[in-house]
């Protein structure tokens, strides 16, 4: 299955992915409408972009009370007609990849198969290709890199 993967050691934390995502979907610029969110730790100098990973079990999809969340054509979709903005999906996602904006759930739709965040990432920290499911959280990645690079505190 094709999915977006993250190389945390390369992410520079510039958040251009957030700008590109919001622009692609709304023609405006706002982190609030971006389906990708960069987690940053300025003390450690570490950064991690969070977005939908196409998990096979997708807890938000299962938990949605109005069946607004579905899997279509390789990505998760949200039917905004059906979405009631209850936020259960936000709670259920293990990777903080769902957010609410104006009462509707926002989830990465892979830009229809050509994810713009990947195309525009300046350091190659994002990749879109056939890849196994992964469960790394930002905190897992930060701990791994702290160990690897000898940075603490």
């Amino acid at each position: 299955m094709k999915r977006i993967t993250v190389d945390a050691g390369r992410c520079a934390g510039c958040r251009q992915c957030e700008m590109v995502c919001s622009f692609h979907h709304t023609k405006k610029f706002s982190p609030e409408t971006s389906r990708v969110t960069v987690i940053k730790d300025d003390r450690l100098g570490l950064d991690y972009p969070l977005m939908c990973r196409q998990c096979s079990d997708c807890p938000p999809l299962k938990a949605c009370p109005t069946q607004a969340i579905n899997r279509e054509g390789g990505s998760i979709t949200v039917d905004w007609q059906a979405c009631i903005g209850c936020g259960v999906c936000v709670e259920e996602c293990r990777y903080d990849a769902v957010k609410l904006h104006d009462g509707k759930a926002l989830i990465c739709d892979l830009c229809g198969g050509d994810p713009q965040c990947v195309a525009r990432c300046p350091t190659g920290a994002l990749d879109y290709s056939e890849a196994p499911e992964f469960s790394e959280t930002p905190w897992d990645a930060f701990n791994r890199l702290k160990e690897e690079w000898g940075i603490h505190g």
Binding site: G9, R10, A12, M19, G45, W149, G150
Partner: peptide, 20 residues
């Protein structure tokens, strides 16, 4: 050990260093 950048940067030229 890595590059870091300001907001919306195409050429993130800041660097994180570590003395090991």
């Amino acid at each position: 050990v890595k590059n870091r950048g300001c907001f919306a940067c195409t050429i993130p030229c800041s660097r994180v260093y570590s003395v090991r």
